[in-house]
Design a protein around this nucleic acid. Structure first.
Length: 800
DNA sequence: CTACAACCAGTTTTT
DNA sequence: CTGGTTGTAG
């Protein structure tokens, strides 16, 4: 048993120890403040590094690793350093390398929870499994995971669950499989295997959740697959049931470091406790005030409880902030002080005063976007006595992604370059996943989930019936779907066009598989996509997304060039969902508050501070005070992203799902400290339409001062009431029910050939034919369609 | 089997 | 409003 990574990277440690022995001052300790230095040098026993926003946490963390190496406490491969994201892992690797002055290939255990668990699980896969007796009288045989298991993504996971749910005869409309997937995820986040799910959860998913969960886990093992949650769950299970293995790793990992500890879930927490159980040399870095992932299983409690979990723990507080001005810090501190459950920390800085946090209200979301667009343009030139800002220095941080659209629309019209960070990831896009499914089937013909995905994509005339035939063939003969398909072809079980197409597909797959030996993988990928008809499918597609999808396929093939072979590529993709394609030009960044964590910008805009939107109504409804506190932490994260200039805004009216709604300013606005806030005068409030908005708005004389005090005081300011009174302009005058009745009455009357009408989805059009209650309408934008009459109104009745 | 209209639900997101 | 899913007609 020599599993821990024994690859030698000892020279790094040796050369460093040599340097340390020479008694030269350690360069990596220079410039650290006392708190940082303590966090670096206190190597033994449990340490909690409470690192506020912008306090140099990564620097301390990397210095600590280097210090461990330099003092000879551990070799590079004896340090376990865990992060949440690949980006963080990469950054840490780079910074350690930079500090060491040489690459860190010898740190195999620096990575994300998931990546490290994959490594561990590949070694011990066979320990995960279950006993199955084939039939009565036969000896039980054990089905277990193999080291080459595949990692399913959420899509595959869902497809598998759907099958199980359907087999149970459950109506998916009442009980969506998606919901069950979330429940199972929740259990896995808490490290609960099916048999450990508490009785309190027995009612989940129509009382059948636990049973299907158990089936799902078995099915995964049969498929030799795991989902993301399993990576943690299985390793925890192994540690819990195999003391000898746990002991081995406890010994091997002499020092443990954890980044973003406030984001750990129960499974990760158990994992860490098990591994640190021997020596307790664990250093957790985090900030309870920045825990914003409760909704996906993160437990703030983990960090709040640290000192109880690890008796004798040393808590080091990093409170000197190197990022933001005093005004910004004061605003952030005032907000976060509203939270009860926190360990308590007070950020301070030596930086110059700078600008106050700016607050501004608007009529509606569009005006907010317009104002921010104008403001950014003037900031580029330098405005209000401030230095000019480059677009790369500016970010807009929103609570919910749908807020982004107003900005995108506005910025497109004024030609302001922007980039959206986050959003759908490259490897999650349909075309990319389809293409990868083809690769998967070629590499591993027994990958049933991938086969299912591609068997009728592009359309080959293999519908539900044909696919069921294939599945029956496979099941009856105990073989994979692909082999089942081959049997179906030979036996002629599938007739006609579909049969011929399937024969072709099976032959193609076999041929591509043979080609793997002599053809380069990039070329092979192109051949597969081309000959399967997949590329052609999108070329023939007239929908507006098709060109983009073809682009993505090209990009995918290009990405292949960075790998030795297809297998290596797929392994990489399973764990890494990076999407860093950017031309690097000067652009404003738009992202969610969640996506902004860990980033910083000289100037930050925080729009949409309205009750219900931020704090989010749903968060408060579902999690009460805990939900509100998490929202407050989100506000804290948002403000502390700003280095020099932070602008908070809210709108009096906002369109929510197409309906106008009047909004109340966020309760967080009340929590802002007046002394550190400057209230800007909303454009248009003192005359005009907002066209004159922007540049000069804040310089208004007394009226501005009056508002400044009152708007921070609350919702009763004159300025705010004026904003509210304007909201009426969006509301249709007639009550809704009356309006509907009128529409119905008039609509029936106006249905005649030649009449101009309006449809919710297709817009304006002219009636060109009538058949019973169906109208044939030539729409101006959407072409000719047949539509049920009640979905159509005469345009005069359109209420706005 | 496919295409298209109707229906419906709708934060935050990483691995 | 919008996108994703479901139901039905050809």
């Amino acid at each position: 048993m020599t599993y821990p990574d024994d690859t030698d990277a000892f020279e790094v440690a040796d050369s460093l120890s040599a340097r340390a022995a020479a008694a030269r001052p350690a360069p990596y300790l220079e410039g650290l403040n006392p708190a940082q230095r303590e966090a670096v040098e206190r190597l033994d026993g449990p340490v909690l590094m409470l690192a506020g926003a912008g306090t140099g946490k990564t620097r301390a963390l990397t210095a600590r690793i280097v210090h461990l190496l330099a003092t000879g406490r551990a070799r590079p491969n004896e340090i376990l350093a865990v992060t949440f994201t690949n980006k963080a892992a990469r950054e840490m690797k780079e910074r350690v390398a930079a500090m060491l002055g040489q690459p860190v290939e010898g740190m195999p255990w620096l990575g994300t929870f998931h990546a490290i668990c994959v490594k561990l699980l590949r070694r011990h896969a066979e320990l995960i499994g279950f006993d199955r007796s084939e039939a009565a009288g036969e000896a039980a045989d054990r089905v277990h995971l193999k080291p080459n298991f595949t990692i399913l993504d959420t899509d595959d996971q869902l497809r598998l669950l759907r099958q199980l749910v359907a087999a149970e005869g459950i109506d998916e409309r009442r009980w969506p499989a998606r919901q069950l997937a979330a429940i199972i995820d929740g259990w896995k986040n808490r490290a609960l295997a099916p048999e450990k799910v508490p009785a309190a959860d027995a009612g989940a998913y129509d009382r059948r959740g636990v049973a299907i969960y158990a089936q799902y886990q078995r099915r995964l093992v049969e498929l030799n697959a795991v989902d993301f949650g399993d990576l943690l769950l299985h390793v925890v299970t192994i540690f819990q049931t195999c003391p000898d293995i746990l002991e081995r790793y406890r010994h091997w990992f002499r020092y443990i470091l954890v980044d973003e500890y406030q984001d750990t879930n129960v499974a990760q927490y158990l994992w860490l406790r098990l591994l640190a159980g021997g020596h307790h040399n664990i250093c957790c870095v985090g900030d309870d005030d920045q825990s914003i992932y409760g909704w996906r299983g993160a437990e703030v409690g983990n960090i709040l409880r640290f000192e109880k979990d690890f008796p004798g723990a040393h808590v080091v507080r990093l409170e000197q902030n190197y990022r933001s001005t005093p005004h910004i810090l004061a605003a952030a501190s005032a907000i976060i002080r509203g939270n009860e459950s926190r360990l308590g920390k007070e950020l301070w800085t030596e930086a110059e005063e700078g600008e106050k946090v700016r607050l501004i209200g608007h009529w509606d979301g569009e005006e907010e976007a317009r104002w921010i667009g104008d403001e950014i343009e003037s900031m580029q030139r330098g405005t209000r006595g401030m230095r000019p800002f480059g677009l790369n220095e500016i970010a807009i941080l929103v609570r919910a992604s749908h807020q982004m659209r107003a900005f995108e629309d506005r910025f497109l019209t004024i030609g302001l370059p922007y980039r959206v960070i986050g959003g759908p990831r490259f490897y999650e896009r349909r075309e990319v996943r389809d293409a990868m499914a083809y690769f998967r089937v070629v590499i591993s013909p027994e990958d049933d989930l991938a086969f299912e995905r591609i068997v009728n994509t592009p359309r080959r005339g293999l519908g539900e019936v044909a696919q069921q035939t294939i599945q029956r063939m496979a099941r009856d003969n105990g073989v994979s779907l692909l082999q089942g398909a081959a049997l179906a072809v030979e036996s002629g079980a599938i007739k006609g066009k579909g049969g011929a197409a399937l024969r072709q597909l099976v032959a193609d797959l076999a041929r591509w598989r043979r080609m793997m030996a002599e053809t380069g993988h990039v070329e092979l990928a192109e051949i597969i996509l081309d000959e399967s008809g997949y590329t052609g499918m999108w070329q023939n597609d007239r929908s507006p997304e098709a060109p983009g999808r073809l682009e993505n396929l090209k990009e995918l093939v290009k990405a292949l060039e960075n790998f030795e072979n297809l297998e290596g590529f797929l392994e990489h993709v399973a764990l890494i969902m990076d999407n860093d394609s950017d031309d690097g030009g000067e652009k404003v960044s738009i992202m969610t508050l969640h996506a902004a964590k860990g980033l910083e910008f000289p100037a930050v805009f925080l729009p949409g501070w309205e009750d219900g939107l931020f704090p989010s109504q749903r968060s408060m409804d579902e999690n009460g005070i805990k939900g509100l506190e998490e929202e407050r932490r989100l506000a804290y994260v948002g403000i502390t992203r700003a280095e020099e200039l932070c602008t908070i805004s809210f709108a009096g009216n906002r369109r929510v799902y197409g309906q106008w709604q009047s909004q109340m300013p966020s309760r967080f606005i009340d929590e802002l400290p007046q002394a550190h806030v400057e209230v800007l005068t909303p454009p248009g409030l003192y005359g005009g339409t907002g066209a004159a908005a922007g540049t000069g708005a804040g310089s208004g004389p007394e009226s501005g001062i009056e508002d400044r005090a009152s708007a921070v005081d609350g919702y009763n300011s004159p300025g705010w009431r004026r904003l509210q009174s304007r909201s009426g302009r969006h509301e249709p005058a007639r009550p809704r029910a009356a309006r509907a009745a009128v529409i119905e009455a008039e609509a029936v009357a106006s249905f005649a050939v030649g009449a101009r009408v309006f449809h919710q989805k297709f817009g304006y059009g002219t009636i060109i034919g009538i058949e019973g209650d169906k109208l044939e309408i030539a729409f101006e934008k959407a072409g000719t369609k047949k539509v049920v009459a009640r979905f159509v109104t005469a345009p005069d009745d359109i209420p706005f």
